Simulated scan of single mutants.
Amino acid sequence: MTNNAVEVAALIARLTELLTSSPLDAAPAAQPEPAQKTHERVLLTPEEAAARIGVGRTTMYRLIRTKEVESVQIGRLRRIAASEVDEYAARLVAGQSNQAAA
């Protein structure tokens, strides 16, 4: 065997010895990177609000026009609070529950 082959064989033998003598869990675990906090938007576009409750854009504009869902105007933009969308959905569910109980 050449000198390089002897060195490689010795390294492989040493690596095998290290792998079999110490359990793999003893190796320090890599610390996971902290997850980026995603900020949920407070004000939604009518399209986002519609998607959140599973209705179409036209239906959402009708709900805004009839004041079933409150919205605000920022310049030329119309926005709906995410909490308002959640409250509207809760009112719908409660209304359906009351009708079913009657």
Score class of each variant (00 low, 15 high):
residue 91 R to M: 08
residue 59 T to N: 05
residue 91 R to A: 06
residue 1 M to Y: 04
residue 83 S to L: 12
residue 25 D to H: 11
residue 89 A to P: 01
residue 80 I to L: 04
residue 89 A to E: 12
residue 8 V to K: 08
residue 53 I to M: 10
residue 75 G to L: 03
residue 17 E to N: 09
residue 102 A to W: 08
residue 36 Q to C: 04
residue 31 Q to K: 11
residue 56 G to E: 05
residue 34 P to V: 13
residue 84 E to A: 15
residue 55 V to R: 04
residue 3 N to I: 09
residue 31 Q to G: 01
residue 94 A to Y: 02
residue 66 T to W: 01
residue 27 A to E: 08
residue 52 R to S: 06
residue 80 I to Q: 00
residue 54 G to D: 02
residue 101 A to V: 10
residue 43 L to D: 05
residue 71 S to D: 01
residue 101 A to S: 12
residue 39 H to G: 05
residue 83 S to F: 02
residue 63 L to T: 01
residue 46 P to H: 02
residue 13 A to I: 02
residue 76 R to M: 05
residue 13 A to E: 15
residue 96 Q to W: 07
residue 41 R to G: 02
residue 81 A to C: 03
residue 28 P to T: 08
residue 19 L to A: 14
residue 77 L to P: 01
residue 93 V to T: 14
residue 68 E to H: 09
residue 82 A to Y: 04
residue 36 Q to L: 10
residue 34 P to R: 09
residue 47 E to H: 09
residue 75 G to S: 05
residue 18 L to T: 07
residue 101 A to I: 12
residue 20 T to E: 14
residue 11 L to C: 09
residue 27 A to G: 05
residue 47 E to P: 00
residue 14 R to C: 07
residue 81 A to P: 09
residue 61 Y to R: 11
residue 50 A to E: 00
residue 5 A to G: 03
residue 88 Y to T: 01
residue 39 H to Y: 08
residue 40 E to W: 07
residue 47 E to Y: 06
residue 26 A to Q: 14
residue 8 V to L: 15
residue 57 R to E: 08
residue 38 T to C: 03
residue 9 A to G: 08
residue 92 L to N: 07
residue 58 T to L: 10
residue 41 R to M: 06
residue 67 K to F: 02
residue 34 P to T: 09
residue 74 I to Y: 06
residue 89 A to K: 15
residue 72 V to H: 01
residue 45 T to S: 15
residue 64 I to H: 00
residue 16 T to E: 15
residue 99 Q to K: 11
residue 16 T to F: 03
residue 7 E to Q: 11
residue 1 M to T: 08
residue 22 S to A: 13
residue 86 D to N: 14
residue 94 A to P: 00
residue 73 Q to V: 12
residue 25 D to T: 14
residue 76 R to Y: 07
residue 93 V to Q: 12
